[in-house]
């Protein structure tokens, strides 16, 4: 039953678990940004990425028994909010012109 004990030893969450989780969610967010054609979904993926970063901040704060992580997470949330606001304003603006918000149609700045 050795594997059970090893399993148990992995059972309790350690710092690594939290970090792995945050990395996973970050990657999923990243893929979402790169793959989805709808602007809104892209913004949501960005929110995901921001959240995963927050998680890693918090887990490190917990690991070090300090509150800096929390402050930073707090700032990130503020920024995320501001960013979301501006992003959505842009989306509306774009929608008004192009009747669609697909990212790959917005190529005017190509040249």
């Amino acid at each position: 039953m050795a594997w059970v004990s090893t399993l148990i030893s992995y059972w309790e969450p350690t710092l690594a678990h939290y970090l792995l989780l945050s990395a996973a969610v970050f990657s999923i967010g990243l893929i979402g940004v790169m793959v989805r054609r709808n602007a809104l979904i892209v913004f949501m993926s960005i929110e995901l990425m921001l959240n995963s970063v927050n998680l890693s901040f918090i887990s490190f704060a917990r690991y070090r028994f300090e509150m800096d992580g929390h402050v930073f997470a707090f700032f990130i949330m503020a920024v995320a909010a501001a960013e979301a606001a501006v992003a959505l304003a842009i989306v509306i603006h774009v929608f008004r012109h192009k009747r669609g918000v697909n990212v790959d149609e917005m190529q005017e700045l190509k040249y």
């Binding site: 940004v33 190529q107 700045l109 190509k110």
Partner: peptide, 14 residues
């Protein structure tokens, strides 16, 4: 490379 699609740029960056 300069195809203009933002996502392609993101992919390249990654």
């Amino acid at each position: 490379l300069q195809s203009g699609s933002v996502q392609r740029y993101a992919t390249y960056i990654t």
